[in-house]
Design a protein around this nucleic acid. Structure first.
Lengths: 214, 214
DNA sequence: TAAATACTAGACTAAATGGTCAAGTTTTGT
DNA sequence: ACAAAACTTGACCATTTAGTCTAGTATTTA
């Protein structure tokens, strides 16, 4: 339980596995599944290539391990929101969560983007069904909010697409953003961009912005 | 000048070149530069691989030819807008133009997205400078509109990023969109999505929506 | 401490890949 | 009609790639 013991408890295997996952996420985020090279993942992880294939059976299983990890990242408090929740609070928080992922896990966002652009060949029927039923549930809640007059009438699909598009853009297109802003996004910039986005989306729904996002 | 002559004027070379460009755009949009395979481009174009390399020196030169073509696609009437133009009209039209590209040239949009995610290794300094100065000019015009009180105060950078993110999302993430909507986007759906987006962005800027987008 | 397990790593292999070559056929311009 | 230019294509090549094999070295466990 002491510090040194805790330190030792991180086995060399755990450490290497995590080095490899980090390196692979970067490479897959840059080049996609087909374009990524096992050798480059190994180089980035500072391990011999054989080592990568010792910890993960194949390039594919490494990719799938990462993808599974990334799908868990999409879970959020919005998943459990009901019609009785305050839409302004819920949506603002959802947008902020999405922006936080773009800030902290840009490569995860990029990898996911590439998987989708690639035709989502590794997101199996199970995930797609789950995703579709998640969507149906959320669309339903938003519709009820609209029926209650809490939101102005709008297609809930487009609302969600707009949230995803704008928030993920900060991760996926960070190179372009940094180039055009002439500097990279700091944590403060992200906070500003988040407030800006919350204001845009919520105003667009006829909601007023919660004070913590002003 | 007659029909048959016009028909003949499309040389076999022109035809093949265009077949190859179409096929390559699709493959590069799916797999990126590294991940795309010359053989698959050839298969998709229904030509032998050697033929592809006869018309284009290399995989790289084919990629660059496409990229150059795509960059021209970004040109729009918004490029020449000045402070004396009506911001509502100009921005609505810009959004509509962007949505039209997503509808008609989704693979071009995807290829560009992959190039950016990839770190924009083929967008040379010249393009980047040009892009940055375009941005500076547009930011300036938007700022002047704000100074004149035509727009509510907002960071013009974020405004443009939001427009790009949301409009390009319909091309880049079309697979996800189709999956979640349970059907693919028709031209009518695109018109609806465009109006929805115009409303969101313009309302967010304190502008009223031009009648043709209602 | 000894055996078992976990890890390392160079040499290697089979398949895939981008690209060349050379020997043709077809089309075009005169 | 005929030569030049444009196009086609299978065979081939050098390199890269994912993945294996084997022979080890650390580390853990009993």
């Amino acid at each position: 339980m002491c510090a040194s013991k805790n330190y030792k408890e991180i086995s060399i295997g755990e450490l290497n596995r995590s080095k490899i996952l980090n390196a692979a996420e970067k490479e897959f985020a840059l080049h996609g599944f087909k374009g990524a090279r096992v050798q480059q993942i190994a180089d980035r992880a500072e391990l011999p290539k054989t080592n990568v294939l010792y910890y993960f059976k194949s390039k594919e299983s490494l990719y799938l391990a990462l993808l599974e990890d990334i799908l868990r990242l999409w879970n959020s408090r919005f998943d459990e929101a009901t019609v009785s929740d305050d839409p302004a609070e819920v949506l603002a928080q959802y947008i902020a969560d999405k922006m936080e992922i773009s800030r902290c896990r840009p490569d995860a966002s990029k990898m996911f983007a590439l998987e989708i652009i690639n035709g989502a060949p590794n997101l199996d029927k199970f995930f797609k069904d789950q995703h579709a039923s998640w969507m149906a549930g959320r669309v339903d809640v938003i519709k009820q909010w609209i029926d209650q007059g809490k939101l102005t009438a709008t297609d809930p699909h487009y609302l969600l697409f707009n949230i995803w598009a704008t928030s993920q853009h900060y991760a996926d297109f960070s190179i372009q953003i940094n180039e055009l802003r002439g500097k990279s996004m700091t944590q403060t910039d992200f906070a500003e961009a988040t407030n800006n986005l919350v204001k845009l989306i919520l105003t667009g729904c006829g909601l007023s912005v919660p004070t913590e996002f002003e």
